[in-house]
Nucleic acid binder design. Structure first.
Length: 488
RNA sequence: CGGGACGUGGCUCAGUCCGGUAGAGCACUCGGCUGGGGGUCGAGGGGUCGCAGGUUCAAAUCCUGUCGUCCCGACCA
């Protein structure tokens, strides 16, 4: 068998790229740092999207759409926000091309009066709209989400993990009180945790970012942090409590029940196509992609095995009722009856693409009333009776989902350590993984650690050990252990 | 944006040092044998060598520029 996927142990980055290529998830585009998301990759995103969208709707949110272009002046209204994004904005300066001997060039006469920014995120244009929508406390809360693309001019890109253009959702909410806005921020953080753990089967740590890692313009940034197989952390989602920063910048006030005019409180939260990168690096192996059943575009693939046309017809007749029954149970099942590929080829291909369950059915099975079932996650193969197969498969999909989470959590926990001295920390960090250690809460210490070890504080965890101690670097007092890692 | 490596049929690469008629494997098309883990035999199709200049009788090969990819840094979802 030709080895098309680099082993993780040999070259993790190359392995990741090989998976993306072999599973046909995405291609590099002609434009640096952008990607073409292929049907296999997009189908995963669609499944993520639909699960998240349901969760947003269940928590009272509505979808809307705001423009791609933002007037340049809007970006400068919130000082912190500008500072955070100014370095990575695509700017539209002209509106026309003109032909010049066989090619085209920008028509200098079409220069725009006010240049437009391609949104790196939509706080500004949304808060400009909210000003017009909000007068009274009766107009609040506003709970809006949008599914969109955004552009951030990145220096170094990697498919899904960091691209110049990416797809995401961004929720933007407006509230009458601080408590309510904070509650919303934390509620959405929980939505993300639930999604990551229950759908992606990816265990996460929830926490607060330190000021240096905080979203530009936020009062507090909360996040879900996950740990990839190579021991590097991935920020998988963020939820921001924006305080009144944007309300003040865009002058959004409401008249409260007490007659007073007050600034609105805000939150924003988002997850992106980066999650697909996280999904890949959480579960996949040296044979290819491994997908949790809840997000797999195809949950079960059936490979018929036959020699003659007659056998082929027999096999198809034999499996038709099972396929129909699985469909009735809402299992996404695909019959791979392509005649131009050999069974062995198909096995390898579906394995590379991460289909959770593969059924192989040949004349022998027809005769014995069996079928062969292979699990993608464990690579186990078993002969099972056709009788009751549909229910067995339905249950097995749930088992696989649970097992993937358990395996990922077990791996994550094994890669999670504690360090009680800086020397110990420096030693452990070389192996990667999460490290819980005491920190004095200062930006100086944080910067020193980053400078010397390349590790950053991923978050100050919301749960777990809250015992105070002494900073491993300065020896000053520390309120609790914080989570360190090298990250993507 | 700095350092390094690399761009040659769809893919992986040889050829570049030392200029002289573009090659291999895989993939693709047609046909045969096949079919329970990337099978096999035969016959075909496909590349102005990333792009733009320059040197030369002659450039994949030498020179300059440019675009892109990968790895390592600085920056970030």
């Amino acid at each position: 068998m030709a080895k098309r996927i680099t082993n993780r142990a040999d070259d993790y980055s190359q392995w990741y790229l090989d998976i993306v290529k072999e599973a046909k998830l995405a291609d590099h585009s002609p434009v640096r740092g952008c990607m073409v998301i292929r049907p296999n990759g997009f189908a995963i995103w669609e499944n993520m999207k639909s699960a998240l969208d349901n969760m947003f709707k269940e928590t009272g949110h509505e979808n809307a759409y705001f423009p791609l272009f933002i007037p340049k002046s809007f970006l400068s209204k919130e000082a912190q926000h500008v500072e955070g994004f100014a370095k990575e904005c695509a700017v539209v300066t002209h509106s026309r091309l003109k032909s010049v001997d066989g090619g085209v060039e920008v028509d200098p006469e079409s220069r725009l009066d006010e240049e437009l920014i391609v949104r790196p995120t939509s706080e500004t244009i949304i808060w400009d709209a909210y000003r017009n929508w909000i007068q009274s406390y009766r107009d609040l809360p506003i709970l809006i989400n949008q599914w969109a693309n955004v552009v951030r001019w990145e220096m170094r890109t990697r498919l899904f993990l960091r691209t110049m253009e990416f797809l995401w959702q961004e929720g933007h909410t407006a509230h009458a009180s601080e408590e309510e806005a904070v509650a919303e921020t934390l509620q959405m953080l929980e939505v993300y945790r639930t999604f990551a753990e229950e759908f992606m089967a990816m265990p996460v740590v929830t926490g607060v970012k330190t000021p240096s890692e905080r979203f530009a313009g936020a009062v507090d940034t909360y996040c879900i942090e996950s740990l990839m197989q190579d021991g590097k952390a991935l920020q998988a989602g963020t939820s921001h409590f924006l305080g009144q920063n944007f309300a003040k910048a865009f002058d959004v006030k409401f008249q409260d029940a007490d007659g007073e005019h007050k600034y609105v409180w805000a939150s924003s939260w988002g997850v992106s196509t980066r999650l697909i990168g996280g999904l890949i690096m959480t579960h996949s192996d040296d044979h290819g992609l491994v997908l949790p059943p809840k997000l797999a575009p195809t949950q079960v693939v059936v490979v018929p095995i036959y020699r003659s046309d007659e056998e082929r017809a027999d096999v198809k007749l034999y499996i038709a009722p099972l396929i129909a029954e699985l469909k009735k149970k809402n299992v996404s099942v695909k019959l791979d009856d392509r005649d131009n590929f050999k069974p062995g080829w198909k096995f390898a291909e579906h394995e590379a693409q991460g289909v959770p369950i593969r059924l192989a059915v040949g004349p022998r099975d027809v005769e014995n009333g069996n079928l062969e079932l292979a699990r993608r996650d464990t690579l186990e193969k078993n002969i099972i009776p056709m009788e009751g197969a549909a229910s067995h498969i339905e249950e097995l999909l749930i088992t696989i989902q649970d097992d993937l989470f358990a395996a990922a959590k077990d791996r994550r926990d094994k890669q999670t350590k504690q360090a009680d001295s800086y020397d110990e920390f420096k030693k452990i960090i070389e192996d990667g993984g999460f490290i819980y250690a005491h920190w004095d809460g200062t930006a100086e210490t944080e910067a020193k650690i980053k400078e010397e070890t390349k590790a950053t504080i991923r978050c100050i965890p919301l749960e777990g050990d809250k015992t105070p101690g002494k900073c491993m670097v300065s020896g000053n007092k520390s309120a609790q252990r914080v989570l360190f890692a090298r990250s993507y």
